[in-house]
Design a protein around this nucleic acid. Structure first.
Length: 299
DNA sequence: GGAATCATGTGAT
DNA sequence: ATCACATGATTCC
């Protein structure tokens, strides 16, 4: 598996091969703040304490965080708390799931927030493990750290995250899923996806995002169900299990959600445990909190 | 409130 | 076959 040696832009020189926008570089700070206020929330670290630990002035940090999240650090913490997650689950989420289900999902799906037309691989194509597929990829700054975007000519196929220096790991993680595909670095081809995915003003029903889901039948069913969860809301793993008609498969659903290759677009971060606890996230629980909190502040 | 324990469906080896 | 899980419910402290 020495394919990695041939990949430009993944060198270990440390210099990122992309422009870092102000928004992109903010995330590293935000991530540390979130980590501190949630890791031991018992201690209830004050803004001053956090600012000191990060070597920044409290007011500057406050401003940066609020600009990023739309929420003060304190309000953010509240939004990512157990109680709030439970409230998200409570009333609206389930009915919405059911009504969406009635709309049917054959053909171009009219879905919530980010409008997506999705296409699943045939079983044959899945067995080929990406064989015959050309996947273009590129790294781009995003509000949640460096994003790795992968696309075929049929649409967006993968979206992964990497924190400082983790680009190579993110690439390996993704490439392992479709080992027989051929990979071409082409940030120019992936950049348009990037712009549309993270800019809500670009989300429109007339111009849905083209997405191709490469997975088993079961996984695709689970991922489709996730697409129906509205922005800023959350459901439990057992909700999803019920939605796909296998009410006892909540654990299997968890596994399938964990395998979702198109994070953020397929909102796997909106699935939480029945208790309201954020049970897990492939790209780190802190990022799940960040995305959920960001949605709470942006909704 | 936990900690321990069980039933459980999928996917990888 | 067997195992690891981003689960959930139950049953003990």
């Amino acid at each position: 598996m020495n394919v990695l040696a041939t990949i430009p832009g993944l060198g270990s020189t440390g210099a990122p091969a992309f422009d870092v926008t102000p928004q992109g570089s903010d995330y590293e700070t935000v991530r540390q703040v979130i980590e501190m206020i949630t890791l031991d929330y018992r201690d209830q670290p004050s803004l001053d304490t956090i600012a000191e630990a990060l070597g920044q002035s409290p007011s500057q940090l406050q401003k940066l965080f609020t600009r990023w999240a739309g929420l003060s650090p304190k309000a953010f913490l509240q939004a990512v708390t157990l109680d709030h997650a439970k409230r998200l689950l409570g009333q609206e989420a389930l009915p919405l799931l059911e009504t969406s289900y009635e709309l049917g999902l054959s053909g171009p799906g009219r879905l919530h927030d980010l409008f997506v037309t999705h296409e699943a691989m045939s079983p044959g194509e899945w067995k080929a493990k990406g064989g015959g597929l050309t996947i273009r990829y590129g790294f781009h700054p995003s509000p949640f750290g460096t994003a790795l975007v992968m696309a075929t000519d049929r649409g967006l196929a993968g979206l992964a995250f990497a924190d400082g220096g983790g680009e190579r790991d993110a690439y390996e993680d993704m490439a392992r899923r479709w080992p027989n595909a051929s990979y071409v670095e082409d940030a120019e081809a992936t950049e348009p996806y990037m712009r549309r995915v993270f800019d809500r003003s670009e989300w429109s029903a007339e111009r849905p995002l083209q997405v191709v889901m490469i997975g088993t039948d079961f996984q695709v069913r689970v991922w489709r169900s996730l697409l129906k969860i509205p922005f800023g809301k959350a459901v439990t793993y057992s909700h999803v299990a019920r939605d796909i008609g296998q009410p006892t498969a909540s654990r299997a659903v968890g596994a399938a959600i964990g395998a979702n290759p198109i994070s953020f677009v397929v909102p796997c971060h909106r699935a939480v445990g029945k208790s309201g606890a954020l049970t897990g996230y492939h790209w780190g629980l802190t990022r799940k909190r960040a995305i959920l909190g960001w949605e709470a502040g942006t909704a």
